[in-house]
Amino acid sequence: MYTKEDQQLAEKLLDHSTELESGQNIMLQLIGLNGIGLLRALVEQVRKRDAHPFIKIEDPEMNRVLLEEGDEDFWANQAEVDQLPLMKQMDAFVGIRAAENIYENSGVPKEANNAYSKEFLNPVHFKERVEHTNWVVLRYPSPAFAMNAKMPTEKFRNFYYNACIFDYEKLEQAMKPLEDLLRKTDLIQLKGDGTDIQFSVKGQNWIPCFGKRNIPDGELFSSPIIDSVNGHITYAPSVYQGKPFEYVKLEVEDGIVVDFDSSNNSALEEILDTDEGARRFGEFSFGLNPVIKEPMYDILFDEKIYGSNHLTLGKDYAIASNGNSSNIHWDLVCIGPDVYCDGELIRKGREFVKDELKGLNPDAF
């Protein structure tokens, strides 16, 4: 059995996000049994569209054991024998992250995370899935997820579906003036509490996101010219590789992190030392989902917070590349800085002030 909301979400994932067609192959990956109702709805809807579901159900605790015990040879074999050949035959992919403990992998050693990222995550997901399928990933609501959001369970459930089953067509239209402006922009500056940083985006590609690759969605992203980033930035709470950070502060010179502070400096230093690209930035984005207001330790939601920006450490996306290569991609979110484009204030705190951009403010929805 599954709920009416799960059926509505499944239909949006297949029709809007992956644009699934008759005869196509689609991988449906569920990590954590909490989302089994949505998976059932997806399987039923895939077959109604005369397409072919390939189902991967994974247990988060088993995955943790594999991460802890795996090395480069293990993950290279997993990729070569199992998931990479299958992924190469996929036209579409839906990934449901339904694990209830976001800290499950907090004790996985740095070397083990690096081995997984290098030999499995990068070839299977970043190279094959991201570049060659119509893919979408999402979290699934749970009491544990509600606790991280500091909401009652039922209130969070309603919030979740409001954020996910959203009028993305309206958001798509509202994004266009901002995209047009950014394509003409050279220098972007963020100024706020603990943040004063600038960088060039001259000639970079900009990608509007309105429910095609993430659910919930609502962002407009590119990447900074790799050596142009200078200043300091303070980020909201974040969890990366199962490790919690109440805050992260970075000092940047010519595109490289030269100093840092956080609530967990030993873990932060390990992440920054992953490889050369881990101290550089591979993405810059505007968060634009008017339903999502506060961080909840889940980046698929937090990076979409309205009035936010994320300046991402690590690997770029091929579709908006700046040449940065890394085994990490950490979307760190800065909430509410003033944003200047070539010296002009376009957003004051969390509200756009330029007339043609006011359609992105929450009261417009």
Rank of each mutant, 00 (worst) to 15 (best):
G359I: 03
G194S: 11
Y297Q: 09
Y160A: 15
K243F: 09
E104M: 13
R280E: 06
S262N: 12
Q198W: 10
V136W: 07
L178F: 08
M27H: 03
L14K: 11
C209M: 12
I31M: 15
I197C: 11
Y297K: 12
I233S: 11
D15W: 13
A144Q: 15
L9F: 13
D167Y: 11
A98N: 14
N105M: 08
F145G: 02
V94M: 05
L220W: 10
F199N: 05
H310Y: 10
N309H: 13
L171N: 08
E69A: 09
Y240A: 09
L313R: 09
L28N: 13
W75K: 00
G336F: 03
Q83Y: 06
G194I: 04
V65Q: 15
Q83G: 06
T153Q: 04
G95F: 13
D355W: 06
K127L: 05
T18L: 06
D363F: 14
E172V: 03
Y297H: 12
M27L: 14
N214Q: 07
A112E: 04
K127Y: 02
D91Q: 03
L67E: 01
A149F: 15
D261C: 07
S285C: 02
G218N: 09
V130I: 12
M87V: 02
F260D: 09
A149H: 07
Y2W: 08
I188S: 06
D254G: 05
E5R: 14
E44I: 07
I225E: 06
A10Q: 04
V94G: 10
L220M: 05
P85R: 15
I233V: 15
K354M: 13
V43L: 02
A278T: 01
N113V: 11
P143T: 14
V353R: 09
L288S: 02
E44H: 10
E111R: 13
P123E: 03
G70W: 01
L66C: 07
S22C: 04
V339D: 03
I197K: 07
F199T: 02
F301S: 03
Q83A: 05
N214K: 10
S142N: 13
K127C: 00
N309R: 07
A278N: 06
P143S: 15
Y340G: 01
I215V: 14
